[in-house]
């Protein structure tokens, strides 16, 4: 039902029909994104992070990826590279394939019956779907945070220590060091340092989500995939998560799926727009939001559909 509606709207978009929204408001939206970019640049200069798009070391390189759930094709010939130590945001309407694409990057789709693909996904030049790649090892390097925080029904400490523990770290002292490091990186340490043995389920929603980030960081991944990590959180918690993502990109390659375009504009270096299983456009965030080259992208970010 929803998908058919979106499809109608695309057809409109393709034929250049501008819908009911007047041209003026489109300009205002573009302007507001432009303002966002300025705010961001100021913040980045202030934080002395390196400027956007100077380093183009490809961490992940996806070539001609097609993805199927049984008979249904979810991704069509997607190719893109994801730079090291950067934040890449995936935007697009529901069911556009952005989550599928994200999950293809650490083979979480393997769990789903009937999922298959063709094409290549290279992590530092190595095919992750190659037969000699162990998916367990891959997921240790490519961590993932989900939309709904899913703390294990265990203590805060055990939640964070779980990853290293199952990987074979038995040393109690080393474990508590990893836990402290991870919680600090996830900006949660100060809030929980006195109650590490308490149940993780007692934490607030925002804290739980940061705990899940800490838990993912504890396995020491190179890449962190985030599937709408802030969509279930209140604005204050969302702001904390966004700040955190900003900090984390110094050390990690971050890929984030978001429904919130302002969020994508605020935190990402590059943004990819997906629509109906196709990668429509991928570019530097600033460029994509201010001067998109594709009509569909423009229509989506100006709120014409989706």
């Amino acid at each position: 039902m929803t998908s058919s509606m979106t499809m109608d709207r695309t057809t409109d978009a393709a034929t250049g029909f501008l819908g009911t929204r007047p041209e003026g408001s489109r300009m205002t939206i573009m302007q507001s994104f432009s303002d966002l970019m300025h705010q961001r640049q100021e913040r980045e200069t202030h934080k002395r992070t390196r400027p956007v798009e100077t380093e183009v070391v490809a961490k992940l390189d996806v070539r001609n990826l097609n993805f199927f759930y049984g008979e249904k094709q979810a991704l069509f010939d997607v190719s893109m590279t994801i730079a090291e130590r950067s934040v890449t945001a995936f935007i697009g309407p529901s069911g556009c394939g952005k989550s599928t694409f994200l999950r293809a990057l650490n083979r979480m789709n393997d769990i789903i019956e009937g999922a298959r693909h063709n094409g290549t996904v290279l992590l530092e030049g190595q095919e992750i779907y190659a037969p000699d790649v162990d998916v367990v090892a891959l997921r240790k390097r490519v961590g993932m945070v989900f939309q709904k925080s899913t703390p294990f029904p265990k203590s805060i400490f055990d939640n964070v220590a779980y990853g290293p523990k199952i990987a074979g770290q038995r040393n109690r002292k080393a474990l508590s060091e990893i836990v402290e490091q991870s919680l600090k990186r996830a900006a949660l340490w100060d809030e929980v340092k006195d109650r590490l043995q308490d149940s993780a389920l007692a934490l607030s929603g925002g804290q739980q989500q940061r705990l899940c980030i800490a838990r993912a960081l504890a396995t020491n991944p190179d890449v962190l995939l985030m599937d709408e990590p802030a969509s279930a959180l209140d604005p204050a918690s969302t702001a904390r998560i966004e700040d955190l993502i900003f900090e984390l990109k110094q050390n990690y390659t971050i890929v984030i799926v978001t429904h919130n375009m302002q969020q994508a504009a605020r935190i990402s270096d590059r943004t990819a727009f997906f629509f109906q299983g196709y990668l429509i456009e991928v570019d530097a965030t600033q460029k994509l939001f201010t001067t998109p080259t594709k009509k569909q992208t423009e229509d989506y970010i100006t709120g014409k559909f989706g």
Binding site: N106, M108, F146, F152, R215, T219
Partner: peptide
């Protein structure tokens, strides 16, 4: 979700 979260941590 518990299983998926565990798999995602390399279990």
């Amino acid at each position: 979700s518990i299983r998926i979260a565990s798999y995602a941590l390399g279990a």
